[in-house]
Amino acid sequence: MNNRRSKFLAAPYALWAAGFILIPLGMIFYYGFTARKGGFTLDNITAIAEPGNMKALILSLILSLISTIICFILAYPLAWILANMKFGKGSFVIIIFILPMWMNFLLRTLAWQSLLEKNGVINTILSFFHLPALKIINTPYAIVLGMVYNFLPFMVLPIYNALEKIDDNIINAAKDLGANRMQTFSRIIFPLSIPGVISGITMVFVPALTTFVISDLLGGGKILLIGNIIEKEFTQDGNWNSGSGLSFVLMIFIIISMILTAKYDTSKEESAP
């Protein structure tokens, strides 16, 4: 009896989700498949094949893949070290990575401009030691740096959570049964951390693929990513249809990563108590 009524506590959220998550997504589909003057069309979708758009999409894919890989390489050892330090319930670790968000995201990225500029902080330090100057501002390298910097916490936290949950007894059991450190890692620890790795990858890849601010600030406004093109369609050209069409194409990539995450999320549920 009571159970049936309790379900209705989710009603406000159900309404909210329908109104603000599902219907808006429907609007993107609607505009994406509608011509500006009305009527069904695929032109907004196929617009992705135009040279400028295709170039931006490919560049976005390359840069976001590189950033995701670098984030993973940096984050895994870090999460591993932090998990072994046993901070207890991890508030300290979470705080370290959440705290920078209290300094505005745009300002943090802008600060990299000051750091990387021709006469910026890093080059001043390098020239003091008579080292060659770092010339990466306004290049794709600076954009990758900005992506890694901004999205690294989203890779560290899920991996850290996954590693921290691993029961020490499992690791000890593996060692007792004669596994060496490499084997313990590759057969026990890494497989158990995969859900965290997968969610970290999506949490980094999706925002990196779709950003327009980082490329704006660190690419000198000359390097266009797919996010820049979509943003322009909406705010400058006022062309919602082709902007929606391109967003729809982006969503295909996002949906692929969501399916991957969902697949590994079920394995997480099974292991939960």
Binding site: F20, M27, I28, V206, P207, L209, T210, F234, S257
Partner: peptide
């Protein structure tokens, strides 16, 4: 289904979420 829908704003790109809401408000 509920938890799947909950994941959408988290996993979807901010730009798509922003645009979709903008289109909703306009409509």
């Amino acid at each position: 289904i509920f938890l799947g829908i909950t994941n959408i704003p988290m996993l979807n790109a901010d730009i798509v979420t922003g645009i979709s809401l903008m289109l909703l408000y306009l409509a």
